[in-house]
Computed example of a mutant assay.
Amino acid sequence: MEISSGITASLAGRYASALYELANEQGLVAAVEGDLERLADALRESADFAALIRNPQVAREDAARAIAAVGQVLGVSPLTANFLGVIAGNRRLSALPDVARAYAAIAAAARNEVTAHVTSAHPLDDGQIAALSEKLAARAGKSIKLKTAVDPEILGGLVVKIGSQMIDSSIRTRLNSLAQAMKG
């Protein structure tokens, strides 16, 4: 499989690419992707965990034990646990967030999928999510993975971001545009 050279050019991209190839051979792409998402979530939620992976003064053995314990608590697959041991041993734990992002990008590209970040003023129900996903898939020509967020400050409408493209149909933006037009 040809993987975008932009993704794999970085250190994190090379690690992610190697992990993806192993996961693909073992039929564990989705499991490893879920493991990496849980690890990324844990890094965002725990300042101590984030500090641990960035601290160069932590000995390799201590870092390996700590990351193994975190992996066990999160219930990661044996392949992901082995991978975490390798990057801890290579003193590359600080690259973990970038590896998780690169792995997700590689896996999405392999599935011909793009992620759409959708912000609405109120939570969307399942029917709205399905309809939006269908429309965005038709527009993008790829399958869509929706990540939704709620921001009451947009007042209504939606803000959709797919890659570098943004579609802002929020009432807040429309009101701001109207206010600018009225200023002359």
Rank of each mutant, 00 (worst) to 15 (best):
Asn112Ser: 12
Leu178Arg: 15
Ile129Ala: 10
Lys142Tyr: 06
Leu84Asp: 01
Ala47Met: 08
Ile167Trp: 14
Gly184Cys: 10
Val29Asp: 01
Ser133Phe: 06
Ile129Val: 14
Ala59Trp: 02
Ala108Trp: 05
Gly141Met: 10
Val99Trp: 07
Ala109Thr: 13
Leu22Met: 07
Gly157Leu: 08
Glu21Gln: 11
Ile129Thr: 08
Ala121Thr: 13
Phe49Arg: 05
Thr8Asp: 09
Val73Ser: 09
Lys183Leu: 12
Arg44Ala: 13
Ser17Phe: 00
Ala40Pro: 04
Gln128Asn: 05
Ala23Cys: 01
Ala181Cys: 14
Arg60Phe: 04
Leu178Gln: 15
Leu132Tyr: 02
Ile3Thr: 13
Gly184Leu: 11
Leu132Gly: 13
Ala109Lys: 14
Arg172Met: 12
Glu134Cys: 08
Ala23His: 00
Ala137Thr: 08
Leu124Trp: 11
Ser46Leu: 03
Ala64Val: 01
Val160Thr: 05
Ile3Trp: 13
Ala40Met: 02
Leu22Ile: 01
Glu113Gly: 08
Ala64Cys: 06
Ala40Gly: 02
Ala104Met: 08
Arg60Asn: 03
Ala42Leu: 03
Ala149Glu: 09
Arg111Thr: 11
Arg172Lys: 15
Glu113Val: 13
Ser4Lys: 12
Ser77Tyr: 01
Ser133Asn: 09
Leu136Pro: 13
Gly156Glu: 14
Tyr15Val: 00
Lys145Arg: 13
Ile7Cys: 06
His122Arg: 09
Leu19Tyr: 04
Ala68Ile: 04
Leu96Lys: 08
Lys135Thr: 10
Gln165Ile: 15
Glu113Gln: 11
Arg65Gly: 03
Leu11Ser: 09
Leu52Ile: 04
Met166His: 00
Glu134Arg: 13
Val76Pro: 00
Ser94Val: 15
His117Gln: 11
Gly156Ser: 13
Met182Ala: 12
Ala104Cys: 05
Ala109Glu: 11
Gly163Asp: 02
Phe83Leu: 04
Ala181Gly: 14
Leu158Phe: 04
Asp151Cys: 15
Ala109Val: 07
Val160Asp: 04
Ala116Cys: 12
Ser17Pro: 03
Arg38Tyr: 00
Glu61Lys: 14
Arg139Ser: 11
Ile167Cys: 03
Tyr20Met: 00
Thr148Asn: 11
Ala130Gly: 03
Thr119Glu: 03
Gly156Cys: 12
Leu19Pro: 00
Ser170Pro: 00
Leu74Gly: 05
Ser133Ile: 06
Ile3Val: 09
Lys142Glu: 10
Ala23Met: 02
Ser169Thr: 15
